[in-house]
């Protein structure tokens, strides 16, 4: 089937079998920033934003994105022009192996888009689906807090 949606701000039109998972569709299309850690909706490495909300792309069909907007880590920023969240997580030394980080970033973006000044509890809750085995979350939470401050300063 053909699925049309907005991916990282650009209109795309992908033809794939109707039971293709969004995760697989993204990776086949070269958007490998979205990671696969379980395919069981339990690790968070595959988190993307669908219509502005964090969801697991392994627990979603591509077809569900029809007419909607999908944001992935690739749309957030790049090495030369990072998003404040990307920069803040690196500056907080929250990026260890980095495998969980794209998912963490998308969950954090989903949160900050709704709540620009979240409490620590709200950050932990927003990230509760994103398992990280390296950091113990301390620096990830610091990084998200830093980014929120920076983003508030910008607007």
């Amino acid at each position: 089937m053909i699925v049309e949606f907005t991916l990282n701000g650009e209109a795309v039109r992908w033809e794939m079998p109707p039971d293709t998972k969004l995760l697989d569709a993204l990776r086949v299309q070269g958007l490998i920033g979205t990671k696969q850690g379980c395919r069981e909706a339990t690790c968070g490495a595959c988190t993307v934003l669908l219509n502005g909300r964090a969801v697991f792309s392994c627990a979603l069909l591509l077809a569900q994105a029809q007419g909607g907007t999908v944001e992935t880590v690739e749309g957030l920023g790049s090495v030369s022009d990072p998003h404040p969240l990307q920069r803040a997580l690196v500056d907080a030394s929250a990026v260890q192996c980095g495998f969980c980080i794209p998912g963490v970033l998308m969950s954090a973006k989903g949160l900050l888009d709704q709540d620009p000044n979240p409490s620590e509890g709200a950050i932990r809750r927003a990230l509760n689906g994103n398992l990280c085995r390296c950091t113990g979350y301390v620096k990830i939470i610091e990084g998200v807090t830093l980014a929120a401050e920076e983003m508030r300063r910008r607007v």
Partner: peptide, 20 residues
């Protein structure tokens, strides 16, 4: 605590892991 040399590349979601 300098910026980790691979930090931004990882945070940008580049093709850095085996399966990527």
């Amino acid at each position: 605590s300098v910026r980790k040399v691979d930090g931004l590349a990882l945070a940008a979601g580049g093709p850095l892991f085996v399966a990527d």
